[in-house]
């Protein structure tokens, strides 16, 4: 069990991140192996092409090394920090227009297929903890009304504010605001219940 936890992206140990940032080569390699696939998938989702996603990831890992981006243990787990950092940087690139033409746009939050390239490092996203979280978020997202899911996706992956989303959907801003708030609250409850079930089991 312990070994499983250590190999999951969702349970990256703050000590591992700390060691990686401080120049421990093995820890840095391990950090990349645990988080690279998830972060690349996120960058690809937002930027829409592999070249930009790879470039962004390279930039992010070097930022971590050069301590330009600093992890603060008081602000969440390492994976929350890494995902937030990747998402924000990708959205920045999207907004500044430094992105090539988008490739195939994968459906959001459907999890219908798991594309695996032949050169995927082994164990990068196969850990039980990651798969459990994946099933949990897929089930929770599937339980949302489509309008709420759409608002969440437009905000998170397209970097749009609720006012911008409202403008695109021709809706009052307050409606979009409410949809996002309700969706986030439902997702929080679903994740909390899933965590409780996991703790009990």
């Amino acid at each position: 069990m312990r070994q499983d936890l250590e190999q999951a992206a969702s349970t990256i140990d703050p000590v591992l991140l700390s060691r990686a940032v401080k120049g421990d080569h093995q820890a840095f390699s391990r950090l990349y192996d645990l988080s690279g696939t998830l972060l690349y998938s996120l960058a690809l989702k937002i930027l829409g092409n592999r070249e930009d996603a790879a470039g962004l990831l390279q930039e992010i890992y070097l930022e971590i090394l050069k301590k330009t981006a600093r992890y603060d243990v008081g602000r969440g787990t390492p994976i929350v920090w890494l995902i937030t950092l990747t998402r924000n940087r990708a959205i920045d690139r999207l907004r500044t227009g430094g992105v090539r033409a988008k490739g195939r746009a994968a459906p959001l939050l459907n999890g219908s297929t798991t594309e695996r390239a032949t050169d995927q490092p082994s164990g990068s996203f196969d850990a039980r903890a990651d798969q459990e979280l994946r099933q949990l978020i897929l089930a929770a997202a599937a339980g949302l009304p489509p309008a709420q899911r759409e608002a969440i996706e437009m905000a998170y992956y397209a970097g749009l504010s609720y006012v911008e989303i409202a403008s695109r959907l021709n809706l009052p801003p307050e409606t979009v605001k409410t949809r996002i708030k309700l969706a986030m609250t439902k997702l929080r409850e679903a994740l909390g219940e899933g965590e409780e079930r996991h703790t009990r089991s």
């Binding site: 998830l38 690349y40 996120l42 989702k45 798991t114 490092p121």
Partner: peptide, 8 residues
């Protein structure tokens, strides 16, 4: 992002 299609 855990619910995204995972691409290596």
């Amino acid at each position: 992002p855990f619910g995204l299609d995972i691409v290596a």
